[in-house]
């Protein structure tokens, strides 16, 4: 994170504020749909009030978790392997977001 410390610091906190609201929505959604079957779950996430916050939760969550894991990598991984771990971190975060968002698109379409 050389020369990008301040921007990363702000990005992590801005995404945290967004996630605060998205997590509240998500926990509400989990309780409201606990035990629901396939059809009811699909119906929930096919409406804009379902797929929009869920998509944001997955996208902003992936953004936030990548910064967080990069910080852990900076703390505990010696410089030689750092780049490799950070690249794997990027792939995992983008991969999780792509699978989640792509699937939401299929559900909503």
């Amino acid at each position: 994170m050389t020369h990008k410390g301040t921007a990363t610091f702000i990005a992590q906190r801005a995404s945290a504020v967004a996630l605060l609201f998205l997590v509240i929505w998500f926990l509400w959604g989990l309780s409201a749909h606990a035990g629901a079957g396939h059809e009811e779950m699909r119906l929930w996430l096919s409406a804009p009030t379902g797929w929009a916050p869920m998509g944001l939760l997955i996208a902003v969550g992936a953004f936030h978790m990548r910064i967080g894991l990069n910080e852990i990598i900076d703390d505990y991984i010696d410089s030689g392997m750092r780049g490799v771990f950070k690249l794997l971190n990027l792939f995992a975060a983008v991969g999780a977001a792509a699978i989640g968002l792509g699937s939401l698109y299929l559900i909503a379409a």
Partner: peptide
Amino acid sequence: TILLSIWVFALA
């Protein structure tokens, strides 16, 4: 988050 994405994938 990875598990959540897999869950949404399975739902789709």
